[in-house]
Amino acid sequence: MRPDAVAVAALVILLFPMGYFLLASPAFLLVKLDIPPVTQLLRGMFNIQFRMVSVAGVIGTVAFIFAGRPLFAAGVGLIAVVAIWGRPWFMQQIDDQLSARDAGDADAVRQLRHLHWKAMLCNAALVAALVASIPYVAISA
């Protein structure tokens, strides 16, 4: 397989979980986050999103190194590092707000919604950047 094809495949593999989250996460804007099963589902979606982007990012980084594209490898590697290191922090933030909500803190639901919006916007920006880079990745080295 040509290195360029490996690089494009790596980009598609990374875009798959990010695209899924881009499409699935807005559905949670239509429901109240004071319902425990809804927030547990949202928490699970964030958890798996971070894990999938971590794995896909590592695979993509290796593929871009193999393809001889160090700049793209660094960019995708940065996405992987943020997903790996950011997951524990983000999950702790969600858990803290869920505990606060369950303890009666009325502001916790608003904070959960803010976390949800921030994650969606960050993901959308990364998807846009990755989609914009496709023509540059597809160009023969």
Rank of each mutant, 00 (worst) to 15 (best):
M1T: 15
M1W: 01
M1K: 03
R2Y: 03
R2D: 15
P3S: 13
A5N: 04
A5K: 06
A5D: 12
V6C: 14
V6H: 01
V6I: 05
A7Q: 06
A7C: 05
A7Y: 03
A7S: 08
A7L: 08
V8M: 10
A9H: 01
A10L: 01
A10G: 06
A10C: 07
V12D: 10
V12L: 13
L14K: 04
L14I: 03
F16C: 09
P17M: 11
M18V: 04
G19F: 03
G19C: 05
F21D: 04
L22C: 01
A24K: 05
S25N: 09
A27P: 00
F28P: 07
F28H: 02
L29E: 07
L29T: 10
L30W: 00
V31M: 07
I35R: 07
P36V: 05
P36L: 01
P36M: 03
P37Q: 14
V38W: 04
T39S: 07
T39V: 14
Q40A: 15
L42W: 05
R43P: 02
R43D: 09
F46S: 02
I48G: 04
I48M: 13
Q49L: 01
R51H: 09
R51D: 13
R51G: 11
M52Y: 12
M52R: 12
M52T: 13
V53P: 00
V55H: 02
A56K: 04
A56W: 00
A56G: 03
G57P: 11
V58A: 13
V58D: 08
I59E: 11
I59V: 14
G60P: 02
G60C: 03
G60R: 07
T61Y: 04
T61G: 12
F66Q: 03
R69Q: 09
P70D: 11
P70K: 10
P70C: 13
F72W: 10
F72G: 04
A73G: 07
A74P: 00
G75A: 10
G77K: 10
G77E: 09
A80D: 04
V81F: 04
A83F: 00
A83H: 07
A83G: 06
I84P: 00
W85M: 15
R87I: 00
P88I: 03
W89L: 14
W89Q: 10
Q92N: 14
Q93G: 15
I94N: 08
I94G: 07
D96I: 01
D96T: 11
Q97W: 02
L98G: 07
S99C: 10
A100T: 04
R101D: 10
G104L: 07
G104R: 06
G104A: 04
D107I: 00
Q111C: 11
L112D: 08
H114Y: 08
H114E: 15
L115T: 08
H116G: 09
H116E: 15
H116R: 12
H116Y: 09
K118R: 13
K118H: 05
L121F: 09
C122M: 09
N123L: 08
N123G: 12
N123T: 14
L126P: 00
L126W: 06
L126A: 15
V127I: 08
V127T: 05
A128E: 09
A129T: 15
I134P: 00
A138Q: 05
